[in-house]
Design a protein around this nucleic acid. Structure first.
Ligand SMILES: [Mn+2]
Ligand SMILES: [Mn+2]
Ligand SMILES: [Mn+2]
Ligand SMILES: [Mn+2]
Lengths: 218, 218
DNA sequence: ATTTTTATTTAGATAGGTCTAAAAAATAAG
DNA sequence: CTTATTTTTTAGACCTATCTAAATAAAAAT
């Protein structure tokens, strides 16, 4: 039996290390979970005890193969529910996260299999993130951040690094969505702001926006 | 803030007393919750403290107006999710209960409003139970148990008292579903078994079945 | 190579929900 | 009415997940 809290910690370790393989520091994990380092230590011990995590004192934590499967399964559920909310229940991409955080913990294999079929086996969630299949496999989305894009290049928006309401609404307000074509006009060396063109309309975006917007060459 | 456990106790009090108005004994509540009487007592105190329940020592528990609203809201969610599972995800009526027990605790007003609309504002769940509206109002379903039905009468099946997998599968196996027309041919005084006709086919059912099948005059 | 700073772990406490065992109240029997 | 039985409550303990404060290890600075 795995608790809801354990699932959330496992997911956090997965996201902080690259797919859970890299070692994650206690402090980083505590911060991600909005708890204190002492709480994170306790949970890390428990996860190691249950064979979901690799842990040596003072050496950080990573996921075992079993832990990775758990993480991928939760992520699969989270992203499928996000698709459901947007495609079927008129949620916008900035409204889905908190609800999906709850729904991802519902335990029923049939539920998630049927939901997958009902949604016609989607491969990506509303933020462009790939949805693992039932075996945990998913295609790596090829992408560069806008900050790393080439001046003069033409790209299409394929994802976001930050799924916060503020950032997603900012994108909405500026008519940037998944699939939007973006041309990189000028990268300002001074403050790393970037001038881009969307449908012929010019827009100046900050470095923070540049780092959180994922593109693919067009 | 109301916890998942509190919600489940409130729902149990609602179902055990008639709509939460009648007073429920500690033992009855403990049994329904599969806990011990001492645990029930602790929870009753907390619910009273939080103004969801009326409680005087040794006198049983009932719901306050606020507690009833909480109960009705959870029941609304439970039943809407059951409709979703059956109508959209190919669940059968005996497969939905456990999943709905989890889904009923998801907190999001928009989610439940949109789900209601997505399902086209259903008034009854797959077991024939009425779905409260967002204000907690719902129409009383007029019904008699098969045991109380008149010999010679013609009825239509409108609900079940027992939603267990075993009973629902029994009904499936005998081609009894919501909406099925049932004629009462003979009520056996000796063991209270009942001979009924469905589509011209004759069937003998036990007293237990009679008590758990709800009908409406045709 | 010490000292200082930072990161991590441990110790002890609290809150929610559960349990067993024992005490107290209410009900039933004699 | 008094005793026995059942129901309910209380006392004390445990487990999970959290916290603060203190101890220890690792890393950085001098
Ligand atoms: Mn999300
Ligand atoms: Mn997402
Ligand atoms: Mn149900
Ligand atoms: Mn039902």
């Amino acid at each position: 039996m795995i608790t809801l809290t354990e699932e959330n910690y496992i997911k956090a370790i997965f996201h902080l290390g690259k797919q859970g393989s890299a070692t994650v520091s206690t402090n980083a994990l505590a911060e991600a979970m909005h708890t204190k380092a002492s709480s994170a230590t306790d949970m890390i011990k428990k996860l190691a005890e249950k064979n979901y995590a690799n842990y040596k004192k003072y050496q950080g934590v990573s996921l075992t193969a079993e832990g990775k499967l758990v993480a991928l399964n939760i992520i699969r559920k989270h992203r499928l529910w996000e698709v459901f909310l947007v495609d079927k229940l008129n949620f916008t991409w900035d409204q889905v996260h908190d609800v999906a955080e709850q729904l991802e913990h519902i335990k029923s294999q049939k539920l998630i299999d049927e939901l997958d079929a009902f949604l016609d086996f989607p491969t990506h969630d509303p933020h462009g993130d790939p949805i693992p299949d039932k075996h945990g496999k998913f295609e790596h989305v090829e992408k560069t951040s806008l900050s790393n894009a080439k001046e003069g290049g033409s790209y299409v928006c394929v994802g976001v690094n930050d799924s916060s309401v503020d950032f997603l609404k900012y994108l909405d307000n500026n008519d940037i969505a998944l699939g939007t074509t973006i041309k990189v006009l000028h990268k300002e060396p001074f403050d790393h702001s970037i001038k881009i063109a969307i449908d012929g309309r010019e827009l100046m975006v900050s470095q923070v926006v540049g780092k959180n917007l994922y593109l693919k060459e067009n």
